[in-house]
Design a protein around this nucleic acid. Structure first.
Length: 257
DNA sequence: ATGGTTGCAGCGCAA
């Protein structure tokens, strides 16, 4: 049995006391982090290592940054999407307990039609091309992260208000669908097909959390070999309601591996 | 409501 959680932590240093309490209480085997917002030498390694985790980071100054924490040894680490020239730290991949895992922070895109939006669609294309190669290995593989795309209207608190807006536009959804249609399983939706309030992110602004105005933009995508062992998938909403929380909730799954 | 809140770095930018 292995527990894997993805979490856009929105600054590992700002979140550290909360994060350590959460890590100690939940004790997941693997944590995929996004938006660590710390250079590698700023990452609070010792405090996390004291809780018996190995750490692989791919950070940059101020923005972005991804990491993999694991109770098992971390091997074969790759930083950045192979074949994609990118000066932003948004992808890290490694092998843990014989299973390949990756943490991805897809660009937000800011607004439909902007330069950042073009970069987002380009990023998704390159991610898909790389994953297509990985899937030829026919191994258990898990790609978790903040995709900044709500796959369907079902994943949005007010689909009409968000119609064709950033996070929900058709090209973004097509980009994510192309990735999923390589043969990946959206773990959370697969186990909760009808659930309406299945959100992972609530804006800090406008009382979104209090009003449960959320979106499902963080996903755990599993290869067939991983999905065959999927026994649970969930959103850890409790920690989102705490003081000094990230604007994203952790999304976890359990695999009988 | 082109608003609202948060983190970083150093008061604008990204989300």
């Amino acid at each position: 049995m292995i527990n894997i959680i993805t979490w856009n932590i929105n600054s590992i240093r700002s979140r550290l006391p909360l994060f350590l309490l959460w890590l100690k209480e939940k004790g997941p085997d693997v944590v995929l982090l996004q938006e660590t917002k710390a250079m590698d030498d700023q990452f609070p390694r010792e405090e996390i290592e004291d809780l018996n985790y190995n750490i692989a980071t791919y950070g940059q100054k101020t923005y972005n940054g991804v990491a993999i924490l694991s109770k098992f040894p971390i091997e074969d680490i790759t930083c950045g999407i192979p074949g994609f020239e990118d000066d932003q730290a948004r992808y890290i991949e490694a092998v843990v307990k014989g299973m390949r895992v990756a943490s991805v922070y897809v660009p937000n895109g800011m607004a439909v039609g902007s330069d950042k939006y073009t970069y987002k669609l380009d990023f998704l294309d390159h991610l898909t091309a790389h994953v297509k190669t990985l899937l030829t290995y026919d191994e258990a593989f898990l790609l978790g992260g903040d995709y900044n795309v709500a796959p369907q209207d079902q994943d949005v608190y007010d689909p009409e208000e968000w119609h064709e807006k950033i996070l929900c536009s058709t090209p973004e959804r097509e980009g994510l669908r192309a990735l999923v249609y390589l043969g990946l399983t959206d773990a959370l939706r697969a186990l909760h097909p009808q659930e309406q309030d299945l959100y992972t992110w609530w804006d800090y602004r406008g009382g979104s959390w209090q009003n449960n105005e959320g979106m499902r933009i963080d996903h755990l995508l599993l290869s067939a070999q991983a999905a065959d062992h999927l026994t649970d998938a969930y959103v850890d909403r409790d920690v989102r309601g705490l003081e000094k929380s990230s604007d994203h909730a952790p999304v976890g799954c359990q695999l009988s591996l």
